[in-house]
Amino acid sequence: MQREAKKLKVGIFDFTDCEGCQVKLVSLRERLLALLERVEIVNWRLGQEKNRMDRFDLVLIEGCPITQDEIDLLKLLRERSTHLIGFGTCATMGGIPAIMDQKERAKWYNKIYGPQYKPRGIDSLPLTSYVKVDFLIHGCPVDENEIVRVMEELLSGKKPAYRGYSVCFQCKLAGNPCRLINGKPCLGPVTQGGCGAICVSGGSPCYGCFGIRDTAQIEGLLDILKGMADKEEIERYFTMFLRYTKEYNEIVRPFMERENG
Protein backbone atom coordinates (compact mmCIF):
# COMPACT_ATOMS: atom_id res chain seq x y z
CA MET A 1 0.00 0.00 0.00
CA GLN A 2 2.83 2.32 0.76
CA ARG A 3 4.05 1.94 -2.80
CA GLU A 4 0.58 2.87 -4.04
CA ALA A 5 0.83 6.22 -2.33
CA LYS A 6 4.09 6.99 -4.05
CA LYS A 7 2.83 6.49 -7.60
CA LEU A 8 3.92 9.30 -9.88
CA LYS A 9 1.12 11.62 -10.94
CA VAL A 10 1.13 11.83 -14.72
CA GLY A 11 -0.77 14.01 -17.18
CA ILE A 12 -0.93 13.45 -20.93
CA PHE A 13 -1.94 16.49 -22.95
CA ASP A 14 -2.31 17.13 -26.65
CA PHE A 15 -2.22 20.42 -28.50
CA THR A 16 -2.88 20.88 -32.21
CA ASP A 17 -1.53 17.86 -34.09
CA CYS A 18 -2.46 14.52 -35.62
CA GLU A 19 -2.51 12.51 -32.35
CA GLY A 20 -0.36 9.87 -34.02
CA CYS A 21 2.05 9.86 -31.09
CA GLN A 22 -0.78 8.99 -28.71
CA VAL A 23 -1.79 6.27 -31.14
CA LYS A 24 1.78 4.97 -30.79
CA LEU A 25 1.35 5.03 -27.02
CA VAL A 26 -1.79 2.89 -27.30
CA SER A 27 0.06 0.61 -29.73
CA LEU A 28 2.34 -0.37 -26.85
CA ARG A 29 -0.62 -2.50 -25.70
CA GLU A 30 0.54 -4.80 -22.88
CA ARG A 31 3.61 -2.67 -22.33
CA LEU A 32 1.38 0.39 -21.88
CA LEU A 33 -0.68 -1.44 -19.25
CA ALA A 34 2.53 -2.33 -17.42
CA LEU A 35 3.61 1.32 -17.47
CA LEU A 36 0.19 2.55 -16.37
CA GLU A 37 0.27 0.26 -13.34
CA ARG A 38 3.28 2.11 -12.04
CA VAL A 39 1.82 5.62 -12.36
CA GLU A 40 -1.42 7.43 -11.70
CA ILE A 41 -2.87 9.02 -14.84
CA VAL A 42 -4.47 12.16 -13.43
CA ASN A 43 -5.37 13.71 -16.75
CA TRP A 44 -5.66 12.20 -20.24
CA ARG A 45 -8.48 13.67 -22.32
CA LEU A 46 -8.21 11.08 -25.07
CA GLY A 47 -8.13 8.15 -22.67
CA GLN A 48 -10.52 8.87 -19.81
CA GLU A 49 -13.57 10.78 -18.65
CA LYS A 50 -12.47 11.91 -15.19
CA ASN A 51 -9.62 14.39 -15.36
CA ARG A 52 -8.06 16.68 -12.77
CA MET A 53 -5.70 19.63 -12.95
CA ASP A 54 -3.59 19.30 -9.81
CA ARG A 55 0.14 19.09 -9.52
CA PHE A 56 1.90 16.66 -11.80
CA ASP A 57 5.16 14.82 -11.30
CA LEU A 58 5.31 14.26 -15.01
CA VAL A 59 3.53 15.85 -17.93
CA LEU A 60 3.77 14.53 -21.49
CA ILE A 61 2.76 17.03 -24.14
CA GLU A 62 2.01 16.04 -27.70
CA GLY A 63 1.35 18.61 -30.42
CA CYS A 64 2.12 22.15 -31.33
CA PRO A 65 0.75 25.01 -29.18
CA ILE A 66 -0.93 26.98 -31.95
CA THR A 67 -3.87 28.72 -30.24
CA GLN A 68 -3.74 31.18 -27.32
CA ASP A 69 -5.62 28.66 -25.14
CA GLU A 70 -2.93 26.09 -25.86
CA ILE A 71 -0.13 28.53 -25.09
CA ASP A 72 -1.83 29.49 -21.80
CA LEU A 73 -2.36 25.85 -20.86
CA LEU A 74 1.28 25.09 -21.66
CA LYS A 75 2.45 27.82 -19.28
CA LEU A 76 0.08 26.58 -16.57
CA LEU A 77 1.30 23.01 -17.02
CA ARG A 78 4.88 24.20 -16.69
CA GLU A 79 4.06 25.82 -13.34
CA ARG A 80 2.30 22.71 -12.09
CA SER A 81 4.71 20.02 -13.19
CA THR A 82 8.06 18.81 -11.97
CA HIS A 83 9.04 17.25 -15.30
CA LEU A 84 7.60 18.51 -18.55
CA ILE A 85 8.34 16.31 -21.55
CA GLY A 86 7.79 17.06 -25.23
CA PHE A 87 6.18 14.04 -26.87
CA GLY A 88 6.68 13.83 -30.62
CA THR A 89 8.12 16.20 -33.18
CA CYS A 90 5.14 18.60 -33.24
CA ALA A 91 5.89 19.35 -29.59
CA THR A 92 9.67 19.11 -29.71
CA MET A 93 10.39 21.00 -32.95
CA GLY A 94 7.07 22.28 -34.28
CA GLY A 95 6.73 19.33 -36.66
CA ILE A 96 4.83 19.42 -39.91
CA PRO A 97 2.65 22.43 -38.85
CA ALA A 98 5.85 24.46 -38.47
CA ILE A 99 6.57 24.17 -42.19
CA MET A 100 4.45 27.31 -42.43
CA ASP A 101 5.67 30.44 -40.66
CA GLN A 102 3.55 33.23 -39.22
CA LYS A 103 3.67 35.44 -42.29
CA GLU A 104 2.57 32.61 -44.58
CA ARG A 105 -0.19 31.68 -42.15
CA ALA A 106 -1.90 35.05 -42.53
CA LYS A 107 -2.07 34.57 -46.29
CA TRP A 108 -3.50 31.07 -46.06
CA TYR A 109 -6.15 31.90 -43.46
CA ASN A 110 -7.60 34.24 -46.02
CA LYS A 111 -7.43 31.69 -48.84
CA ILE A 112 -8.78 28.75 -46.88
CA TYR A 113 -11.33 30.40 -44.58
CA GLY A 114 -12.09 33.69 -46.32
CA PRO A 115 -11.61 37.29 -45.16
CA GLN A 116 -14.40 37.23 -42.52
CA TYR A 117 -12.77 34.51 -40.46
CA LYS A 118 -11.10 35.29 -37.15
CA PRO A 119 -8.13 32.91 -36.89
CA ARG A 120 -7.53 31.13 -33.55
CA GLY A 121 -3.99 30.13 -34.43
CA ILE A 122 -1.10 32.43 -33.57
CA ASP A 123 1.99 30.61 -34.79
CA SER A 124 3.25 27.03 -35.01
CA LEU A 125 6.29 26.89 -32.75
CA PRO A 126 7.80 24.18 -30.56
CA LEU A 127 7.09 24.05 -26.82
CA THR A 128 10.56 25.39 -26.09
CA SER A 129 9.63 28.72 -27.67
CA TYR A 130 7.37 29.34 -24.67
CA VAL A 131 8.62 27.35 -21.68
CA LYS A 132 11.55 25.32 -20.41
CA VAL A 133 11.17 21.67 -21.41
CA ASP A 134 12.98 18.94 -19.46
CA PHE A 135 13.31 16.31 -22.16
CA LEU A 136 12.33 15.92 -25.80
CA ILE A 137 11.04 12.58 -27.06
CA HIS A 138 11.41 13.30 -30.77
CA GLY A 139 9.77 11.43 -33.63
CA CYS A 140 6.96 11.87 -36.12
CA PRO A 141 5.65 9.58 -34.83
CA VAL A 142 7.55 8.67 -31.66
CA ASP A 143 8.92 5.13 -31.57
CA GLU A 144 7.42 2.55 -29.18
CA ASN A 145 10.78 1.37 -27.82
CA GLU A 146 11.92 4.93 -27.25
CA ILE A 147 8.77 5.70 -25.23
CA VAL A 148 9.43 2.72 -22.99
CA ARG A 149 13.13 3.52 -22.63
CA VAL A 150 12.56 7.15 -21.65
CA MET A 151 9.65 6.32 -19.34
CA GLU A 152 11.69 3.62 -17.59
CA GLU A 153 14.48 6.09 -16.98
CA LEU A 154 12.10 8.78 -15.71
CA LEU A 155 10.24 6.34 -13.46
CA SER A 156 13.45 5.19 -11.86
CA GLY A 157 14.38 8.79 -11.15
CA LYS A 158 17.16 9.03 -13.74
CA LYS A 159 17.68 11.79 -16.22
CA PRO A 160 17.04 10.30 -19.65
CA ALA A 161 19.82 10.61 -22.21
CA TYR A 162 19.68 11.40 -25.91
CA ARG A 163 21.00 8.80 -28.34
CA GLY A 164 24.65 9.34 -29.15
CA TYR A 165 24.51 7.63 -32.54
CA SER A 166 22.97 8.66 -35.86
CA VAL A 167 20.20 7.18 -37.99
CA CYS A 168 22.96 5.96 -40.35
CA PHE A 169 24.29 3.66 -37.64
CA GLN A 170 20.93 1.87 -37.44
CA CYS A 171 20.43 2.11 -41.19
CA LYS A 172 23.61 0.13 -41.79
CA LEU A 173 22.56 -2.46 -39.20
CA ALA A 174 19.28 -2.79 -41.11
CA GLY A 175 21.28 -3.54 -44.25
CA ASN A 176 19.87 -0.71 -46.38
CA PRO A 177 21.85 0.50 -49.39
CA CYS A 178 22.93 4.09 -48.67
CA ARG A 179 20.85 6.71 -50.45
CA LEU A 180 23.66 9.26 -50.48
CA ILE A 181 25.97 6.88 -52.34
CA ASN A 182 23.18 6.47 -54.90
CA GLY A 183 22.74 10.22 -55.34
CA LYS A 184 19.56 10.52 -53.28
CA PRO A 185 19.34 13.07 -50.45
CA CYS A 186 19.03 11.87 -46.85
CA LEU A 187 19.39 13.56 -43.46
CA GLY A 188 20.32 10.35 -41.63
CA PRO A 189 23.94 11.37 -40.92
CA VAL A 190 22.97 14.41 -38.82
CA THR A 191 19.90 12.87 -37.18
CA GLN A 192 19.68 11.29 -33.74
CA GLY A 193 19.11 7.54 -33.95
CA GLY A 194 16.49 5.54 -32.09
CA CYS A 195 13.91 4.99 -34.83
CA GLY A 196 15.75 2.05 -36.39
CA ALA A 197 16.00 4.00 -39.68
CA ILE A 198 12.44 2.96 -40.32
CA CYS A 199 11.74 5.41 -43.18
CA VAL A 200 14.85 4.48 -45.12
CA SER A 201 14.03 0.79 -44.62
CA GLY A 202 10.65 1.50 -46.22
CA GLY A 203 12.28 3.28 -49.16
CA SER A 204 11.73 6.90 -48.08
CA PRO A 205 14.40 9.43 -47.17
CA CYS A 206 15.20 10.38 -43.58
CA TYR A 207 13.90 13.91 -43.00
CA GLY A 208 15.37 14.15 -39.52
CA CYS A 209 12.27 13.87 -37.33
CA PHE A 210 14.34 12.52 -34.41
CA GLY A 211 16.17 15.84 -34.16
CA ILE A 212 19.76 16.86 -34.82
CA ARG A 213 22.18 14.72 -32.86
CA ASP A 214 25.09 16.01 -30.79
CA THR A 215 28.30 16.62 -32.74
CA ALA A 216 26.51 16.33 -36.10
CA GLN A 217 28.70 17.34 -39.04
CA ILE A 218 26.15 19.53 -40.77
CA GLU A 219 28.54 21.32 -43.13
CA GLY A 220 29.92 17.98 -44.24
CA LEU A 221 26.44 16.75 -45.15
CA LEU A 222 25.58 20.03 -46.88
CA ASP A 223 28.66 19.64 -49.07
CA ILE A 224 27.53 16.16 -50.09
CA LEU A 225 23.91 17.24 -50.68
CA LYS A 226 25.10 20.13 -52.86
CA GLY A 227 26.38 17.55 -55.31
CA MET A 228 22.97 15.94 -55.83
CA ALA A 229 20.30 18.53 -55.09
CA ASP A 230 19.62 22.19 -55.75
CA LYS A 231 19.28 24.75 -53.02
CA GLU A 232 15.50 24.58 -52.99
CA GLU A 233 15.51 20.84 -52.53
CA ILE A 234 18.03 20.96 -49.69
CA GLU A 235 15.87 23.61 -48.07
CA ARG A 236 12.78 21.41 -48.45
CA TYR A 237 14.54 18.55 -46.68
CA PHE A 238 15.63 20.68 -43.75
CA THR A 239 12.28 22.44 -43.38
CA MET A 240 10.23 19.25 -43.20
CA PHE A 241 10.91 18.98 -39.45
CA LEU A 242 14.01 20.97 -38.55
CA ARG A 243 13.11 24.58 -39.32
CA TYR A 244 13.20 25.72 -35.67
CA THR A 245 16.41 23.99 -34.66
CA LYS A 246 19.43 26.05 -33.72
CA GLU A 247 21.48 24.22 -36.35
CA TYR A 248 19.11 25.13 -39.15
CA ASN A 249 19.29 28.79 -38.30
CA GLU A 250 22.99 28.96 -37.49
CA ILE A 251 24.42 26.62 -40.13
CA VAL A 252 22.00 25.60 -42.87
CA ARG A 253 20.55 29.05 -43.54
CA PRO A 254 23.87 30.90 -43.72
CA PHE A 255 25.22 28.09 -45.92
CA MET A 256 22.32 28.57 -48.34
CA GLU A 257 22.81 32.29 -48.38
CA ARG A 258 26.50 31.84 -49.20
CA GLU A 259 25.57 29.43 -51.97
CA ASN A 260 23.21 32.04 -53.34
CA GLY A 261 25.78 34.83 -53.38
Binding site: T16, C64, I66, I96, M100, R105, I112, G121, S124, M240
Partner: peptide, 20 residues
Protein backbone atom coordinates in the same frame (compact mmCIF):
# COMPACT_ATOMS: atom_id res chain seq x y z
CA UNK B 1 -5.80 24.95 -34.03
CA UNK B 2 -5.57 25.49 -37.80
CA UNK B 3 -2.58 23.82 -39.42
CA UNK B 4 -3.43 24.96 -42.96
CA UNK B 5 -2.30 21.79 -44.75
CA UNK B 6 -3.65 22.97 -48.09
CA UNK B 7 -1.16 25.83 -47.86
CA UNK B 8 1.69 23.69 -46.52
CA UNK B 9 1.47 21.51 -49.65
CA UNK B 10 1.81 24.34 -52.16
CA UNK B 11 5.41 24.55 -53.37
CA UNK B 12 6.22 21.02 -52.16
CA UNK B 13 6.87 18.21 -54.65
CA UNK B 14 4.39 15.58 -55.83
CA UNK B 15 6.37 12.92 -53.95
CA UNK B 16 6.17 14.87 -50.69
CA UNK B 17 2.37 15.16 -50.72
CA UNK B 18 1.70 11.64 -49.43
CA UNK B 19 4.49 12.08 -46.88
CA UNK B 20 2.91 15.24 -45.47
Amino acid sequence: GERLFEGILVGRTAEEVHWI
